[in-house]
Amino acid sequence: MEIDPLIFRLSIFILSIFVGYYVVWSVTPSLHTPLMSVTNAISSVIIVGAIIAGLSGNSESIFNTSSIFGFMAIALAAINIFGGFLVTQRMLAMYKKKKKNK
């Protein structure tokens, strides 16, 4: 009997939770705010679902109810992707070590 592909995704999911657990514990507490903004940005990879929905219309009807929700989701996710990564970059650029010159 074949294994349902769902089981494979479930395995990936469970293992990723463990990876996430260990990776996040190793994040230094001083970078917890950038951690939140970057997780925000990467969870917006949900845009791939929005793109599929947005492209689902054919040439006669680009806009149907489903694709309109897709387009709205694209805009929302894009705000998050650009905003999240850029603000993280901006924060991380501020973390500096002590200058040696005295």
């Binding site: 995704r9 990936i12 999911f13 469970i14 990723s16 939770i17 990876v19 996430g20 657990y21 990776v23 996040v24 514990w25 917890h32 951690l35 939140m36 997780t39 990467i42 969870s43 990879v45 949900i46 791939v48 679902g49």
Partner: peptide, 15 residues
């Protein structure tokens, strides 16, 4: 999406 969801989910839970 599955990997990212798991990462973000556990990250928030740990925080």
């Amino acid at each position: 999406l599955v990997i990212t969801g798991a990462l973000v989910g556990s990250s928030g839970a740990i925080l």
